[in-house]
């Protein structure tokens, strides 16, 4: 029982990060129909930029804030200089562009920073909390709480502000959005910026536990994508659910089978979704009447 609890907690922690990456996928996919495989690079940038600014002598909160700002700017630049000029291109071309951007960002990070693994000091120390026989890192709770705060803020923004609704409207029907006078370059650009910021925050929160390096983005993007597919691509709730489920599945299979299988779980999930339920768990409900 203690063992199960231990696996569940580490699974949920990693799952929260997958959930945030999947949420980033969802935001960009809904706004622009682009599957952004550079999503994992935002997580990498958030962590690495914080590490290096901290090493340069800045206080942690300032370093973290600047890292989020820097990643957001990279997200905006990705939209403005890579996605927007290719508007109207087909899905495969756009995916190629984001893979290219991902390789570029990884290369740039390797040159600007280095190829080593780095960590950040945990927010509340590293003395594990004992709970039901399991040991939980305080930082795990920080990651979970951070993910929860982001999800709630995002929901409030989309549900309670007119700008949030304009972002939803752009996602629902871009032609109609333009016809009511919404500058869709603004709303789509905003989706890229928010996705990048969410990725960066996830990266900062999880670095004390999982460490970060220039090349962590690729695998995170693939797992975030698996999570988004599991939840039902295009569904924000599905993305969060898919992320947490994938994290749990990974931790449980690593614990009870073998840790060698851990990274395979995401790909088995992708295959299983494609074979059994291509629309995902919460695939977009079709309420449209024509």
């Amino acid at each position: 029982m203690a063992e199960l609890l231990q696996f569940a907690f580490s699974g949920l922690t990693v799952g929260a990060v997958y959930a945030l990456v999947a949420l980033g996928f969802t935001l960009i996919y809904n706004a622009s129909d682009v599957i952004n495989f550079a999503q994992g690079e935002f997580v990498m940038l958030g962590g690495l930029v914080t590490v290096f600014l901290l090493a340069a002598g800045l206080p942690l909160p300032v370093a973290a804030l600047l890292a989020v700002v820097a990643s957001t700017l990279v997200g905006l630049a990705l939209y403005r200089f890579a996605i927007e000029p290719a508007r109207g291109a087909n899905a495969v071309t756009l995916i190629m562009i984001t893979i290219g951007a991902s390789i570029f960002l990884r290369g740039a990070a390797q040159v600007i920073f280095d190829k080593r693994y780095h960590s950040l000091p945990p927010l509340f120390g590293d003395t594990p909390i004992r709970f039901g026989g399991a040991a939980i890192l305080p930082q795990s709770l920080v990651v979970l709480a951070g993910a929860l705060v982001i999800v709630v803020l995002l929901w409030a923004f989309v549900d309670r502000t007119l700008f949030g609704k304009a972002v939803l409207a752009t996602a629902a029907n871009k032609l109609a959005a333009r016809l009511v006078g919404i500058d869709t370059r603004l709303t789509v650009g905003f989706s890229f910026a928010i996705s990048a910021a969410i990725g960066a925050i996830a990266g900062i929160l999880v670095t004390p536990i999982t460490l970060t390096s220039y090349n962590i983005g690729t695998l995170l993007a693939l797992k975030g994508f698996a999570a988004a597919m599991l939840g039902g691509i295009g569904s924000a709730v599905g993305a969060v659910l898919g992320g947490l489920l994938l994290g749990l599945l990974e931790a449980l299979s690593a614990g009870y089978l073998s840790s060698e299988f851990k990274d395979a779980v995401a790909f088995i999930v992708i295959l299983a979704v494609l074979f059994v339920r291509p629309q995902g768990l919460l695939g977009r409900a079709r309420v449209e009447r024509v």
């Binding site: 609704k165 409207a169 029907n173 032609l175 959005a177 869709t184």
Partner: peptide
């Protein structure tokens, strides 16, 4: 979007509503 600001509104062919949004939100937008 600037043409709408000048005062040109279109009711497009096939309605083109924001399907997942409520009636009220469609009007607000």
């Amino acid at each position: 979007h600037r043409r709408v600001l000048l005062g040109i509104a279109q009711v497009p062919e096939g309605r083109q509503l924001f399907a997942p949004l409520s009636v009220e939100d469609n009007l607000k937008l």
